[in-house]
Simulated scan of single mutants.
Amino acid sequence: MGRLRWFRTIRAQLMLGFGIILLLHGISAAIGYGSLQRFRSRSQTTLDNAAQLRELSLELKTNFLLARQAEEAYFDTWQGGNIDASAQVHIQTNHAYLAQARQKLAALRKLEAQNPELAEEFALLGSLFNNYESAFETTTRRIAEDSLNHEVHRQLKDLLATLPDSQRAELMLLRMLVWQLMAEQQTYLAN
């Protein structure tokens, strides 16, 4: 009974109360520290993802800008009247940089699982990318086809110039057919 009597004293009750408060404070601190560590870990993961996203985005932008420079060089070459091997080099350079940009876009899409809110932006970026590639391919193909058609037009003009001026029916018919062919070719080129 002597022991229980001591527990009934104010000193014992204060010690027990402060002990419980310290215990609860210790548990609270441990929970807070654990939460802080989880928050820190998640924050670091988020920062790492953001840094990776930024780095891949910059590399994608760089590759795309280099592809655009190759495109501009191609068009400068074409406007200079050259559709030769150097123009093909610009097309191949464009394709190489676009392939690298595609790899960066694929890597960015892998980050989409960690950042689902970016899915719409990645889909739009992929669509814009596909549209650019398609437009460049179509344009270069049309330029190559048109250059061949312009060569045919030049050859027809040369043929017309070599035909003698004569009133013979066969030569007049041949001249008319060449003129007709040139007109049809011009109509095709205008479309």
Results as ranks from 00 to 15, higher is better:
Gly32Val: 01
Leu181Gln: 15
Leu23Ile: 14
Arg68Phe: 01
Ala101Val: 07
Ile27Gln: 05
Asp84Cys: 09
His95Arg: 09
Phe122Trp: 13
Phe18Ser: 12
Lys61Gly: 02
Leu156Val: 05
Ile10Gly: 05
Arg40Ala: 13
Asn131His: 11
Ser134Lys: 10
Thr187Glu: 06
Gly26Asp: 01
Asn63Glu: 10
Ala161Asp: 13
Trp78Pro: 01
Ala67Cys: 02
Asn130Leu: 13
Glu59Gly: 00
Thr62Lys: 13
Gln88Glu: 10
Phe129Ser: 07
Ala123Tyr: 02
Gln52Cys: 02
Ala144Asp: 01
Gln100Glu: 15
Thr139Val: 02
Glu117Trp: 03
Met15Tyr: 11
Ala70Glu: 10
Gln52Ile: 05
Gly81Ile: 08
Lys110Arg: 15
Val178Leu: 15
Asp76Pro: 00
Phe18Ala: 08
Asn49Trp: 09
Phe122Pro: 10
Ala96Cys: 01
Asn115Phe: 14
Glu137Lys: 01
Ala70Ile: 09
Leu24Met: 11
Gln13Leu: 13
Gln114Arg: 14
Ser127His: 10
Thr9Asn: 02
Arg42Ser: 12
Ala87Val: 09
Met172Val: 10
Ala144Gly: 01
Leu47Cys: 03
Thr187Met: 02
Leu148Pro: 00
Met1Ile: 00
Trp179Asp: 14
Ser166Ile: 04
Gln180Glu: 14
Leu118Tyr: 15
Lys104Trp: 02
Glu133Ser: 10
Thr93Asp: 14
Gly19Cys: 04
Leu148Thr: 09
Tyr132Leu: 14
Tyr97Pro: 08
Ala144Cys: 00
Asn149Trp: 06
His90Tyr: 14
Leu163Ile: 12
Gln114His: 13
Asn130Asp: 15
Arg142Lys: 10
Leu177Pro: 04
Leu60Phe: 14
Gln180Thr: 10
Glu55Asn: 11
Gln92Asp: 12
Val152Asp: 05
Gln186Pro: 00
Gly2Ala: 04
Gln114Trp: 10
Val89Cys: 01
Ser147Met: 07
Leu124Trp: 10
Ala135Glu: 15
Thr77Cys: 08
